[in-house]
């Protein structure tokens, strides 16, 4: 098997409090994942679970006192978690792209879209202005902006929300990155526009073999375009595997509960939705043992102490002592590739 584009091993991130008397806040408590070329990995979880933080850590964009306190991040085999700021910035501009929820964070309101695209293209490729402009037009065209050549001379505010996000995608793709980190890229968009932008993601990823980390809170988005999915809870990945496995045959009780609590458009209407009691703990109050045990119906004594290992359960990893194996007769049990790669 070829080397993954991104390898994250036991990544820990903590936030140093500005007040000296408070201990640093552990927000990522050991995250491991791989993304192969051409693969879209979805990272889902509730706000505060650490999914955006994982993306920010890979991008070297931890803000507000955050720092990597353990583990490693490898990009094409090369460690990037200890790179100096200048080098990670070069990497970020070229081989690792980023798309965020608010397109205006990536766009300069005072420059035309064409100028921004040309500038990005020319930092990566030796092209004349005219060639770069032609390339920019074809990029805009490829992300589905109509009348691309004409719209190059327009400013970001002249684009609608969905079109703006397409421009950001074109900008991120201009460097022909190997890895794209997309943090809630369609959350601010209307559902009909979201569908179009998601389809575009899938298309670009398939056409260029880009590896994508898609951070989202929407299981529907994951089902729509992801190949694999990691479910995060309180700073850890509790379950990671193929979308079909995880969404249709969830093994971790949190994944199970989460999926059951989402009303479906095609399931019969029940008088009540399934609900998980309680709420996810804040980083400062993560309980000992498995972080999910106070809300878990299957919790036993063993769940209340020690670390819960990531077990390989039928082509996926699950951090649970009592994963749901009821469907395991149909699928062979074995450790997934990510688990094997771990030392």
């Amino acid at each position: 098997m070829s080397q993954p584009v991104l390898e994250v091993r036991d990544l820990k991130v903590e936030f140093v409090s500005p007040r000296a008397d408070r201990p640093p806040l552990q927000t990522l408590r050991g995250v491991s994942l791989d993304i192969a070329a051409g693969e879209i990995l979805g990272l889902v979880g509730e706000s505060g679970a650490g999914k955006s933080l994982t993306g920010a850590a890979v991008l070297g964009l931890l803000a507000g006192g955050g720092r990597i306190s353990g583990g490693e991040i490898r990009f094409s085999g090369q460690r990037i978690d200890r790179l100096p700021e200048a080098e990670i910035r070069v990497l970020r501009g070229s081989r690792i792209g980023a798309v965020f929820q608010d397109p205006m964070t990536a766009l300069d309101p005072l420059m035309t879209v064409g100028e921004q695209l040309v500038e990005t293209i020319r930092t990566h490729r030796r092209l004349s202005r005219r060639q770069a402009r032609d390339h920019a037009a074809s990029l805009l065209d490829s992300v589905g902006v109509p009348a691309a050549a004409r719209r190059l001379s327009q400013y970001p505010h002249q684009f609608s929300g969905g079109m703006r996000q397409r421009v950001v995608l074109a900008l991120a793709m201009a460097g022909e990155p190997d890895l794209l980190i997309a943090d809630e890229p369609t959350t601010a968009l209307d559902v009909s526009v979201q569908a179009q932008v998601l389809a575009l993601f899938r298309e670009l990823c398939d056409a260029r073999g880009t590896a994508v980390m898609l951070v989202t809170h929407d299981m529907g988005v994951v089902a729509e375009i992801c190949d694999r999915v990691g479910v995060m809870y309180a700073g850890r990945i509790v379950e990671i595997g193929s979308v079909d496995d995880v969404l249709e045959r969830p093994a971790h009780p949190y994944t199970e509960g989460l999926l059951r609590s989402i009303p479906a458009l095609d399931a019969p209407r029940e008088p009540r939705l399934w609900q998980i009691p309680g709420a996810m703990p804040r980083p400062a109050a993560v309980p000992e043992g498995c972080a999910y045990h106070p809300r878990c119906p299957r919790a036993q004594e063993i769940c209340r102490r020690g670390n819960t290992p990531l077990l390989g359960v039928s082509m996926r990893d699950v951090a649970c002592h009592f994963p749901n194996r009821s469907w395991s007769s149909t699928v062979s049990i074995g450790r997934s590739s990510a688990a094997e790669a771990r030392p």
């Binding site: 209307d190 009909s192 979201q194 089902a223 729509e224 375009i225």
Partner: peptide, 22 residues
């Protein structure tokens, strides 16, 4: 269109008709 656009169906099934913005 609104119903077809709800994400969750695999790989854009039946989404060909979704186009344009408000």
């Amino acid at each position: 269109m609104l119903l077809a656009a709800v994400p969750g169906k695999r790989r854009g099934q039946g989404k060909a008709g979704i186009q344009g913005e408000l």
